[in-house]
Design a protein around this nucleic acid. Structure first.
Lengths: 407, 407
DNA sequence: GTATTTTGTCAAGTTTCTTTACAAATATCT
DNA sequence: AGATATTTGTAAAGAAACTTGACAAAATAC
């Protein structure tokens, strides 16, 4: 019955520009009381006050303890109210859908995972809708009336369309339309790596960053550029496809048809291939056992082995880091970010890779740019992609997709 | 006396958010009459009307002919009023200051050039202030009370500071403070290539682009990234330093201290060095005469010779284009722009270079990204840099630094 | 204990934008 | 040609959003 109530009355926030600006300012911790909001946003205390009471009435903000600092009457600390509103995000990853339910602060309230029968687009869409319709029934608060969905491949966010997903051989899948028709609720589509980048920008290590680069390393490599909280899409949603920059004009053939892409040197696929080749040549390694057990090796396996000191694994990561580290260095030189977050299935494992990448980046990046940047590992865990979907919902429903600068 | 009047009353535009949005919409040709403004901006016709009449009163807009299209009463075409307000920009380039006076539409009303005695920072600052104070006296309308100044090197735009200009051996020059103290008028500082990019985005080939990359090729190489009319600065004003991406880890030493930067392969300096070396080895070329006449050769000379079919010149441009073209390809793959404009002293000459760069970019860029982009030569002429300064003034005084999307 | 400072809110006032209404100027239909 | 429909621009009245000025409340400083 809660669902019905929400479905009938979509989220009621559209009154005046300043309402969302105030919400942003609280989320970005630019201000913490009604009076400091007024100062930082150039509003009168009265207006800040009325907007805040409206936001409290909508269960978006709440009052916390008093702020005893300075001379006069203490202000009342304001914070996002995490008790009522819920965002639902989904991510497709290696044959499964992951779902998360989050509160306004990005804390994960509940998760669910669903295996997809096969790799056909039909099963993919079907499982998504089934999963969502089961998942949303158990939402523990008021559901923001939209679903954010992270998928692999090139995504047209406006039309909710997967333009192309080379790994899976998919083309032109109208995901949002499919979901919206069946669930009667807005569906917001995004590339899963870009989604993960958004999640890092809002809830992870990129909170304080104004110029964030997120680099996702899994079977492929791609990046998200997030400036002041807003994801850069590019003219045809291709911004961030760093896996297919050309490293070596005469290098090995890539799945994309070109030669010597970064993808063939540094992706999880590339790392696994390197190790497999070395094992076939008879090199000794812990990974030989893994190979015998699983018949195949993944980039993740190599990272684990590297953590146990396996020399083949360490060499392979070092090798992969040479090209990727140089690419990151050049990205730093070009875009001058204040933070680079290394994530994705491979990038988020605590392994020597991050150290190697830092070394290479420092060696090759322009010093002025390098000295402004921190390179860190993602810390949001497995559900980043789905959390990214939830971010989209928060942005869309609360217009939160920007960072407020102090003063 | 006009100057005095303006100096006493700074530009009077700060009333309400929508005022500047309306101005932007007219400039971007998103709407052309009061009624279509209202539709596109989600305003009532009445509000659009009152804002327009305020803007007409301020001599920012004017009415032109009637719009006879469709059924009802024709609307009145609105356009920027180029007859009253003037912006002044300056650029330092190869030992001279160039000044321009423009109207609101970026048409150049008047120019002036001043040679600087030597390369010392003092002479540089002195000539700037002297030039500006002479130039502003003859302004043919109302002067927007700020100067936009394009300079080489790494620039802190907030503090109006040249952080570093390696070519000239300069460090920490507080340009804006110097100008403001002497001329009692706001000074806005920017890197000259980024300024040129802004000018292209507003008045040149980038008018329609939402994701513009401007690449300036002169003695050095650098880029400007302009998204929806706003220049991306990065976390420490370093965005766009593509001259110092590493192309070859074991390449020749660059002035920046690293090895194998793009700068040493494709800049004007690099092209000139290539040609000089070939001449010294005895290769035949038209450029031998130039060399004998001037004692030295510039990148510009090489472009001219290439236009006359000189084979050494053609070979050198081709060689330079291999690295730069690959870099542009990778930039296109990463950032997915809708336009790349090649400019700067070398890039803006009509020569075979642009064709070579297009070829290389097409060969190495990701097809999805390449098919979305047009690569064009700059067409704004010599004064682009100073025009960029004028853009800064327009942006600062009229808050025009953004593009309005239709609907 | 008194003075000072700062916060949050109330009531009244201002500014900005909208709604409603209407005259003006065009195209289309008969 | 004349009536009808459509669209534009503006005026007057009203609604919404923000500000100003005043004041009680709650802390620190003297």
């Amino acid at each position: 019955m809660k669902e019905n109530a929400v479905a009938q009355s979509p989220f009621p926030l559209s009154e005046g520009e300043y309402t969302t600006v105030v919400l942003k300012a609280i989320e970005n911790r630019v201000a913490e009381s009604r009076a400091s909001l007024a100062r930082h946003l150039g509003l009168s205390r009265t207006t800040a006050s009325t907007i805040v009471s409206r936001l409290i009435r909508l269960n978006l903000l709440k009052e916390k303890n008093l702020l005893r600092e300075g001379r006069g009457r203490p202000g009342i600390l304001l914070d996002l109210d995490e008790s009522v509103w819920r965002a639902v995000g989904a991510e497709y990853h290696s044959g499964s859908w992951s779902f998360v339910e989050t509160d306004l602060k990005g804390s994960i309230v509940r998760t669910m995972s669903v295996k997809v029968a096969d790799r056909a687009p039909d099963s993919f869409l079907n499982s998504l809708v089934q999963g969502l319709s089961i998942f949303k029934k158990e939402v523990s608060g008021e559901l923001l009336p939209a679903f954010g969905i992270g998928v692999p491949g090139l995504v047209d966010c406006d039309r909710g369309l997967i333009i192309r997903a080379d790994d899976l051989g998919w083309q032109n899948i109208l995901v949002s339309e499919y979901v919206e028709k069946r669930l009667k609720s807005k569906a917001l589509l995004i590339n899963r790596n870009r989604g993960a980048g958004l999640a890092e920008a809002r809830f992870g290590g990129g909170r304080a960053a104004h110029q964030l680069v997120y680099i996702g390393i899994g079977t492929g490599i791609s990046a998200a550029f997030i400036i002041d909280g807003a994801l850069i899409h590019g003219s045809s949603f291709g911004t961030g496809e760093i896996g297919h920059i050309t490293i070596n004009k005469t290098g090995p053939l890539c799945a994309c048809g070109k030669r010597g892409c970064l993808h063939v040197y540094s992706s999880g696929t590339a790392i696994a291939r390197m190790v497999t080749a070395a094992l076939n040549e008879g090199r000794e390694s812990l990974l030989r056992f893994t190979m015998e057990e699983q018949q195949s090796i993944s980039g993740e396996d190599v990272c684990m082995a590297a953590n146990e000191g396996d020399s083949l694994a360490l060499d392979s990561l070092r090798e992969a880091s040479r090209q990727l580290g140089l690419a990151i260095a050049n990205i730093i030189t070009i875009s001058n970010p204040d933070k680079v977050i290394i994530g994705g299935p491979i990038g988020s494992i605590d392994s020597p890779l991050i150290g190697y990448l830092r070394e290479e980046a420092e060696r090759w990046a322009m010093p002025h740019a390098f000295s402004a940047v921190k390179i860190e590992r993602s810390t949001l865990g497995e559900s980043v992609g789905a959390l990214g979907g939830a971010c989209l919902v928060l942005d869309h429903k609360l217009s939160l997709a920007a960072k407020v600068r102090k003063k």
